[in-house]
């Protein structure tokens, strides 16, 4: 499997650039709508994001001009792992952005406290890259992180019980 480089026609890079262009266009539109109410912020955001739009379009034209003489090797560029990572991080970003109140509710009020478990699990999992190469066993580390999450939940219940006893 060949990995994409900057000078190679790669469909994922073009999709990323198009998504960036969509976001900049959206922000430019919001800036234009802001001009009548808040002229300073409106003009600054319109000029800033409008310029970013133009730069992104130029970058897009450069990317699609690469390797024009040959058909793109799509099969060689396909990677399930890379696609899963991209989809996964996008979904997590969207979920955490939308479910802000829901997460804080889970952390404080829900009976099984999945938020506490998930928070500990993800945070401890992030320490995995710091481990030595010879100790790197991802499955084992995932299990340890899951157990640490359970420990956090037990600690959370213990703290609540202690507060009730003391007060």
């Amino acid at each position: 499997m060949s990995s994409p480089t900057k000078e190679q026609f790669y469909i994922g890079t073009i999709l990323g650039t198009l998504l960036g262009l969509l976001i900049f266009a959206l922000l430019t539109g919001i800036g234009i709508r802001l001009i009548p109410r808040q002229p300073k912020i409106g003009w600054v955001s319109t000029v800033l994001f409008g310029t970013m739009c133009v730069v992104t379009v130029l970058d897009l034209v450069r990317e699609i001009s690469l390797e024009q003489d040959k058909m793109p090797d799509v099969k060689g560029q396909l990677s399930i792992r890379r696609a899963l990572i991209a989809v996964g991080v996008t979904l997590v970003t969207l979920f955490l952005g939308i479910a802000d109140e829901f997460i804080s509710f889970l952390f404080s009020n829900s009976f099984p406290r999945p938020g506490v478990w998930l928070g500990t699990f993800v945070t401890t999992l992030a320490f995995y890259p710091l481990r030595d190469e010879k100790h790197a066993d991802f499955k084992r580390w995932t299990l340890v992180c899951a157990i640490l999450g359970v420990a956090s939940v037990i600690l959370s219940y213990g703290k609540d019980w202690l507060v009730n006893v003391l007060i």
């Binding site: 073009i14 999709l15 198009l18 998504l19 969509l22 266009a25 699609i64 001009s65 024009q68």
Partner: peptide
């Protein structure tokens, strides 16, 4: 070839804007 790819990019952008809407 460049025009075909450019048209493809424009069509994807058109589709993404509908999805966003």
């Amino acid at each position: 070839m460049r025009l075909i790819r450019l048209l493809g990019a424009v069509v994807i952008f058109y589709g993404l804007s509908y999805l966003l809407h």
